[in-house]
Simulated assay, not measured.
Amino acid sequence: MTIEPQAAASFDAERALRLAAQTFEIEAEALLAIRSELSSAFIDTMRLVLACRGRVVVMGMGKSGHVGRKIAATLASTGTPAMFVHPGEASHGDLGMVTLQDVVLAISNSGESDELNVILPVLKRLGVPLVAMTGRAGSTLARHADQVLLCKVEREACPLNLAPTTSTTAQMAMGDALAVALLDARGFHEQDFARSHPGGALGRKLLMHVRDLMRSGDDLPRVAPEAEFLQMLHEMSAKGLGFAVVVGPDDVVQGIFTDGDLRRLIERGTDLRAFRAHEVMHTAPRRVRDDVLAVEAATVMEQHRVTSVLVVDAQDRLVGAINSNDLMRAKVI
């Protein structure tokens, strides 16, 4: 059947907004109803998963399958190993992916999905724990399950009460609730989350260290305390960082001279050629250790309103420098 496209001006805008608002109301009410009926089955499901030595194998058909893929991804990224297996493929060989160490989370609003139900006896014979996420407590899926996470909804948000809308929202929310409770029970922290999201903004902030981004070696503008002023300017210009670090024996930091310092001296009309580096330097430059997170260097810059910080080791020896441009290129800030 071909459905002819409607003219853009032919729909009722007020009705559209009313239906949109009604969708939010119906789905919000359904989630609150499910929340009020959370039972010991939720806790027992958590215990099953926490004791699991394998993975949570999520299954579902149609829209429940799409929800299942998202739930599996959320679990996996928050400390609970998980994967999605398509029920239709499971009965044609993919069931071999499921081991005795796994827990199966099967999702079906009706609990009567043929593709799921055909593999339920096999799972029972294998002795694999089965958790059902369904809207019907008396369904075939629920009867076979060891635990039932009931996601019953009174109606779909669809005006025809046909398209999976409220029911899939309920499934998604139940999956999120399970993932959140599990990550808390496991003591899962930001650093753990970053390790599974190394390409994201949080991963960059929590995994990237100053030593990964800093300038070092010959790229550092450094001079001795007795260096002539023009020699220091040449070093600053050659390295292009907007400052020169004054170091003593063994590269121990003694001070810093910046572009801003140069401007202020010029404004005074001072004869700059007579100065030595130690006479114009600041003796307390901002510094961080090379083993701290790059985001900590960004915090130091923000707090002290500077664009660069020096990087030192435990003996206060100069090992590098990092500026805001380095942090922006790495997308830390």
Rank of each mutant, 00 (worst) to 15 (best):
A185Q: 10
P198N: 14
A201L: 10
D212P: 10
A181W: 11
G217Q: 05
A177P: 02
L182D: 06
R204E: 11
L202G: 09
R186F: 03
G217F: 10
L206D: 06
M208G: 01
A201C: 03
H209T: 04
M214K: 00
D192T: 14
M174D: 05
S216E: 14
G217L: 03
Q191E: 12
G187K: 12
R215D: 09
H197R: 15
F188Q: 06
A194C: 15
M214I: 01
R186C: 13
M208Q: 07
L213S: 03
Q191N: 02
G199T: 13
H197Y: 08
R211V: 00
D184F: 05
A181H: 04
R186H: 09
A173Q: 06
G217S: 10
A194P: 12
D184M: 02
H197D: 04
P221A: 15
G187R: 07
Q171W: 05
H209C: 08
D218E: 12
Q191S: 15
D184W: 01
A177S: 06
G217M: 04
G199D: 06
G203D: 01
V210R: 04
R195S: 15
A177F: 05
A194D: 05
R204A: 02
L207F: 11
P198L: 14
G217Y: 02
R204N: 13
S196R: 07
K205Y: 00
A170Q: 13
L182R: 11
A170D: 15
L178P: 06
V180Q: 12
G200R: 12
M214G: 07
D184C: 00
R215M: 05
L213W: 04
L206F: 11
L207C: 01
G175M: 09
R186S: 13
R222S: 04
M214C: 00
E190M: 14
